[in-house]
Nucleic acid binder design. Structure first.
Lengths: 250, 250
DNA sequence: GCCGTCAAGTCTACAGCGTAGATTTTAAGC
DNA sequence: GCTTAAAATCTACGCTGTAGACTTGACGGC
């Protein structure tokens, strides 16, 4: 019988860590993360399920390994001479490419990725770009958190809308059609006056808003509501800008 | 034996949809979403696992029901007179309260929530606030997407860091200590010049940047890199602002 | 009052999951 | 040459979601 037992000849091992992770990524990219079971992965490798455990301690380790494999593809063009806005754009684009290449892995990219050295390098680029604004460290960290949170939120939306191929706003528009227009007047008005050719995968528009805000505050804007026509005068803002978690309504 | 069979007396039903969802939420809040199995839920209700299926078609329906239950708690103060920035803040705060009250449900709040009528009402508030900036519909949708994506990214970070109680930047700082400072010079410099008392749960600072950017563009800023000292002069920006998905590096 | 239909709950069972433990064979180290 | 350890397999356990059959009692129509 073709039943194989015992340790294989040298160099004839059936499995290596690299192959396991590559195959796992293939399954995830092709059929989603829920299709990636240890048994399925083993079948794909033509091997007993338990064989994998000689190379990786458990399923979580496989997923972490796959995530690090993907993050290792992250390559940033270190253009130290460019304006900081372009550097942030470059950071965002690199992350965007990763997410669009592996949308089914998005959740793990966001959660597991934090521990990856490749991500540290990427953050070095982001922080260096933001440091060139001249803002104090505290503001830089806040701005970086803002950029990262936005990109993660956008990435998650991409990952979730993989099936429906709709952006968040697009899904809202569809849902809206089930109700009479007067029920949600603003939404109805705005979406009826909107062109058809929006592309939800874009990240530029959001970043444009975001970088404008960072630039404003870096220039000396106080982040309050003061610099808006018809807004509050400087000093009478009642939105806490440096508060310590006071979010109550009262 | 205490073995119960058959249809119960009128009014003596052991289960109602409402109780099932409330108990499921209790499990999720207390022990995380992975603890919420149908068997566990049934045990908590003192009932056979299959009994649940007479009230909800499957586990996914339970989770959707729980999500809608939580979203139904979302109540926005409709202060139509306030400046639009404060209205956006109010929207963000309401969402924040929801997330902090049920961090273990974050992923479902983001993904399943889209179909909930309560979320439509919340979006009506957000869009109405942004419409008061005077921006054209296309910009309003972009700004709303930005706000929603940021809040979702922030919420996901809260959900993921529930165990470690660390913010994204805080986790970065910890990871950074494993390497010599000269390896990631900018990160090292910034984090060493940073106070200890950062509170990662805050959303105000990010929103301050974000609203500043929206206000700038609403005032007539073009969203390019032009309005930054030392940046590009107006018109020579090579960052696409109205592009159609052209994200290539070349 | 009676009877068919349906609803609520139980019980059994199945396929799939992650993985612990024992077993077999062979490569590598002393 | 002997010992140790590694690679792969096999079996088995407890867990999961849920399909299907069964029991009992409520309810509507006659």
């Amino acid at each position: 019988m073709g039943r194989k037992l015992g340790r294989p000849r040298a160099g004839k091992e059936l499995l290596i860590r690299e192959q396991i992770l590559a195959t796992a990524l293939q399954i995830i990219d092709g059929e989603g993360i829920q299709a990636m079971s240890m048994r399925r992965l083993a079948a794909e490798l033509g091997v007993d399920p338990m064989a994998i455990y000689h190379h990786l301690p458990n399923k979580e380790a496989v997923l972490v390994g796959v995530t690090e494999l993907v993050f290792s593809e992250l390559r940033l063009p270190a253009q130290a001479e460019a304006p900081w806005q372009q550097q942030v754009y470059a950071f965002a684009r690199a992350y965007r490419e990763l997410v669009l290449a592996h949308p089914n892995l998005v959740l793990h990219l966001i959660s597991v990725g934090t521990g990856s050295p490749a991500l540290l390098a990427a953050n070095e680029v982001l922080y260096a770009a933001l440091a060139r604004t001249g803002m104090p460290p505290r503001r830089i960290v806040q701005a970086a958190d803002l950029v990262v949170d936005y990109l993660n939120g956008w990435a998650l939306a991409v990952g979730l809308s993989q099936n429906s191929k709709l952006g968040a706003a697009q899904g809202l528009a569809t849902l809206l059609q089930q109700y009479p227009p007067e029920h949600y007047p603003t939404l109805s008005r705005i979406f009826s006056n909107l062109g058809e050719d929006e592309h939800p995968g874009s990240i530029e528009e959001g970043l444009a808003f975001l970088l404008a805000g960072i630039a404003w505050i870096a220039q000396g804007g106080d982040g309050s509501l003061a610099h808006q026509q018809g807004g509050l005068a400087r000093g009478e803002s009642n939105v806490p800008t440096g508060g310590r978690g006071d979010m109550s309504f009262g």
